[in-house]
Design a protein around this nucleic acid. Structure first.
Lengths: 227, 227
DNA sequence: AGAAGTTTTTACACAACCTTCACGATATGC
DNA sequence: GCATATCGTGAAGGTTGTGTAAAAACTTCT
């Protein structure tokens, strides 16, 4: 896989180095910027896959950078992780409202940062994947439109139902455990009982009518889409 | 299902009880310790699958425990979740640098804790999974799909049958005792009579048809997959 | 804040499964 | 070839996992 590039924006040199070192070690390509202006310029010139943005910047504020990135058509889809001191809680909220995807509070552990980076990038990748519709026998799923057709008839699924079906239908034959399904729907370590999945499966099968039997139960393991 | 054992270390009795109650309910086996020394002793005596460690301990500090666990060859691979009060942020970082795998800040919700526990434990398990299919003569096993083909024909195996066959087929020619097989299927110390294996073997051979003869009996030792 | 819709938990029945048991079959050592 | 330990096998019983409905807990919208 082409290794993703990450733009890190912070005015403190040592933070920059710490982050660069760790991301490097995890196989990412790192660009840096020490001011908001530089960050915007670099982001526009060579679109990175992710921006890690300190909110405390000299001159142009981190929140402004965030806003500008989200307002530019070219960079609006760019995921942003906001870096902030614990005390600036309100900034976190503002940041997230402005479109940041996640935040990490200083002081942060490299491990946590890397984990967040991975999660965000994984999400981005799967967003790309979601472009091409899936067609299996008489079931069609269009991830872009979030639309499902079973035997040509439109089926109305909820958010969770759609995601579960998509996770299964994307890799027919592959068995997913209930917790893998939870991950696919809500991201890592979302706290639910596994029985929640069963309930969703029931209503999925019901809504899908005769296509409902495409979802197979693999006893004491999980579920799979019939191949 | 093999239930994992978790060692919980905290000096406050009520925290201990809260954690125990919730982990119990989720099907884990819980051991407890109220001091660092006790924790180290118990961890070494009977290796748990995971340690939940409060950093605030009387006597030996939680960080020391963490360090000691990571320095002992026997326990270095042991995943650790660190429990800590919100205010001790710097300890979290230190903890993670010392090799802790995750942290939860007090006060914590049981749900979140359980989710973290699951994630950590799952990591260990799923490393085994996602393996490539095995092909021996006219038998094919795909662990990701939990699918078996004998002479090109699909064979429907139960959870236990599949696991036994997989354990044997993974190392053709190697003899496994009945208890090694039990371990492979249910994890350590699962209480069954060894005759239970025989019964499973019978139905396996029956279902596999002519491929059934690939499973050889090694009298007074166990079974093996014919090489 | 209330309502509508969605998701999760809870509880229970039922079916599938695993283990045990009992006894016959088969191998092994003498 | 006989005695003995070990294995094969069918049936019974207990355990576990799943389907399902209904209630509780969240969300979102008004």
């Amino acid at each position: 896989m082409a290794n993703e590039s990450i733009l890190v924006v912070d005015d403190e040199e040592d933070v920059l180095e710490l982050v660069r070192y760790n991301l490097d070690r995890s196989g990412y390509h790192v660009e840096t910027a020490t001011s908001g202006e530089e960050a915007l310029a670099k982001a526009r010139r060579k679109l990175p896959d992710l921006v890690i943005l300190d909110l405390m910047l000299p001159g142009m504020d981190g929140l402004d950078v965030c806003k500008k990135l989200k307002n530019d058509a070219k960079t609006e889809g760019l995921p942003i992780i906001v870096l902030t001191a614990k005390s600036e809680e309100s900034d976190i909220v503002t940041g997230l409202e402005l479109g940041a995807d996640d935040y990490v509070t200083k002081p942060f552990s490299p491990k946590v940062l890397i984990a967040r980076v991975r999660r965000i990038l994984r999400r981005a990748v799967s967003r790309d994947m979601e472009k091409s519709p899936i067609r299996i026998r008489d079931l069609v799923m269009d991830p872009g439109r979030r639309e499902v057709l079973a035997k040509g008839k439109h089926v109305n699924l909820t958010f969770t139902e759609f995601n579960i079906l998509y996770a299964l239908a994307r890799r027919p034959g592959l068995v997913l455990t209930r917790y893998q399904i939870v991950d696919a729907v809500h991201g890592d370590d979302y706290p639910v009982t596994d029985r929640a999945i069963d309930v969703q499966i029931v209503s999925l099968r019901k809504k899908l009518g005769s296509c409902g039997s495409y979802i197979e139960t693999v006893r004491s393991v999980g579920y799979r889409f019939k191949d």
